Amino acid sequence: MQKVTAFAPATVANVSCGFDILGFAVDDLGDKVTVSLSGNPGIRVTKIEGDKGKLPYEADKNTCGVAIHAMLEQMDFEGGLEIELYKGLPLGSGMGSSAASAVAALVAVNRLLGNPFEKKELLPFAIEAERIACGAGHADNVSPALLGGFVLIRDYHPLDVIPLNVPRGLYCTLVHPHLVLNTSDSRSVLRRNVSLKDATTQSGNIAGLVAGLFQEDMSLISRSLNDVIAEPSRSVLIPGYDEVKEAIKAAGALGCGISGSGPTIFILSPNEEIAWEVSRLSQQVFEKIGLPIDLYVSAINTRGAYIIEEEQ
Rank of each mutant, 00 (worst) to 15 (best):
V166W: 07
P167Q: 02
P167V: 02
P167R: 03
G169N: 06
G169V: 03
L170P: 04
L170G: 04
L170C: 06
Y171C: 04
Y171G: 03
Y171S: 03
Y171P: 02
L174R: 05
L174A: 10
P177W: 06
P177I: 07
H178E: 14
L179C: 11
L179K: 12
L181K: 08
N182C: 14
D185M: 15
D185W: 13
D185A: 15
S186T: 13
S186G: 15
R187K: 10
R187F: 14
S188H: 11
V189W: 10
L190K: 00
R191N: 15
R191H: 13
R192M: 14
V194F: 09
S195H: 07
D198M: 07
A199M: 11
T200P: 05
T200K: 10
Q202R: 00
Q202E: 12
S203D: 05
N205I: 12
N205V: 13
I206Q: 05
A207T: 10
A207P: 02
L209D: 04
L209S: 01
G212P: 03
L213S: 05
L213T: 11
F214I: 03
E216S: 12
D217Q: 07
D217R: 00
M218H: 08
S219Q: 14
S219F: 11
S219H: 09
S219I: 14
R223K: 12
R223M: 06
L225E: 02
N226D: 13
V228I: 12
A230I: 11
A230W: 12
P232L: 08
S235G: 13
S235P: 07
S235Q: 15
V236T: 13
V236I: 15
V236M: 12
L237V: 10
L237S: 12
I238H: 10
G240P: 09
D242Y: 15
E243Q: 11
E243K: 14
E243H: 15
E246Q: 10
A247F: 14
I248Y: 11
I248G: 04
A250N: 14
G252R: 00
A253D: 02
L254F: 06
C256I: 05
C256L: 07
S259H: 06
G262N: 08
I265G: 07
F266S: 04
F266G: 03
I267G: 01
I267C: 05
E272A: 03
A275P: 01
A275K: 01
W276S: 06
E277S: 11
V278G: 06
R280F: 09
L281A: 00
S282K: 02
Q283E: 09
Q283Y: 10
Q283T: 11
Q284G: 10
V285P: 04
V285A: 07
F286R: 08
F286V: 09
F286I: 04
K288A: 13
I289E: 06
I289M: 08
G290N: 02
G290A: 01
L291Q: 00
I293V: 08
L295R: 00
Y296N: 05
V297E: 02
V297P: 06
A299G: 10
I300F: 05
N301S: 00
R303Y: 01
R303N: 08
A305E: 02
A305Q: 06
Y306C: 00
I307D: 00
